[in-house]
């Protein structure tokens, strides 16, 4: 829409048209935002309801009394503290591994010449098309042969060996950094690793933040991995813990929503803290379509 100018019928009228358009856009946006927010508000209000409120018909939007004790009650039903520790462990190890194992290949693709570079890069892009289901069974067999079922290893180990999409994202950004900067440092005798660390990375905050948040969210929310690999309660992550909770208390919606709220709060905090750089990074990923 840019700045749509309405025709030749005078600046006064065109300004009015623009104002009217902007007003309509506002009304629609607020309505849309309300629709997007309502589910989360419902989650919050349900988490405070009593067991009768939850099953009242017709349903009420607001709880009759605000039962904050639903939070500790839900939390203490299962060892959610343990689940949180496991989830944090897996997420942190996976994020660190992702950053290291994606930055190095991305830098290689962006800056170093080798005969097979084009082919390997095409191969990297091709793997982005492979859905996780196709790899699930053979990876499970591999980890079970290695005796790693019911450990946290299968959940973070693959992250240490690169992810095509993040490598692509980082490489695209590295390419926009002027090569003259590298050359100047190389003149001063800096090694490739040194150039990456002290020139490329400090200039690459948006894609690095984006990859961090992407990897954080993906691992924190990972459902299928924990379901497939984890067997005992002390190894569970929040995702499988919540699922177990649902299995045991299917209609206990108030406690279920209270614990669910607690599991999404860390991601919302991370997102809000890093929002600007993150959105810049997402926008960057879409440039693949240009």
């Amino acid at each position: 829409m840019g700045t749509p100018r309405a025709s030749s019928s005078g600046p006064a009228q065109s300004a009015r048209v623009v104002r009217a358009q902007r007003r309509t856009a506002y009304v629609l946006l607020i309505a849309g935002a309300a629709v997007y927010l309502l589910p989360l508000l419902w989650m919050f209000s349900t988490s405070l309801k009593s067991s009768q409120d939850v099953l009242s018909f017709p349903p009420q939007f607001f709880p009759t009394s605000w039962l904050w004790q639903n939070y500790p009650e839900g939390w203490n039903t299962l060892p959610f503290g343990r689940f949180t520790v496991n989830t944090v462990l897996v997420t942190v190890l996976a994020v660190v591994g992702t950053l290291i194992s994606c930055v190095l290949p991305a830098y290689a693709f962006a800056r170093m010449r080798a005969r097979s570079r084009g082919f390997l890069f095409a191969l990297t892009l091709a793997t982005m098309m492979i859905p996780g289901e196709v790899l699930l069974v053979p990876q499970f067999i591999m980890f079970s042969e290695a005796g790693l079922v019911n450990t946290l290893w299968p959940l973070f180990l693959p992250a240490w060996f690169g992810t095509a999409f993040y490598i692509f994202l980082l490489r695209q950004f590295f390419l926009t950094i002027p090569r003259e900067l590298d050359d100047a440092a190389r003149l001063d005798g800096a090694s490739s690793l040194r150039i990456l660390w002290s020139i490329i990375l400090p200039l690459s905050k948006p894609p690095l933040v984006a990859v961090t948040v992407f990897a954080f969210v993906a691992n924190w929310n990972n459902v299928i991995g924990p379901i497939v690999y984890l067997r005992s309660l002390d190894k569970y992550t929040l995702a499988v813990g919540l699922r177990l909770f649902q299995g045991q208390h299917a209609t206990d919606y108030n406690h279920l929503m209270a614990v669910s709220m607690l599991t999404i709060i860390p991601i919302v905090v991370v997102f809000l803290l890093l929002q600007r750089a993150f959105i810049q990074g997402v926008a960057l990923s879409g440039m693949g379509g240009r």
Binding site: P39, T46, M257, S260
Partner: peptide, 23 residues
């Protein structure tokens, strides 16, 4: 607005799946 439209994508997991079974 951008943050509001984006947040659901960030929190999508077991928690929001259970939320939608309820919704």
């Amino acid at each position: 607005f951008r943050a509001i439209f984006y947040i659901p994508a960030v929190v999508a997991g077991v928690g929001t799946a259970l939320l939608w079974t309820n919704l």
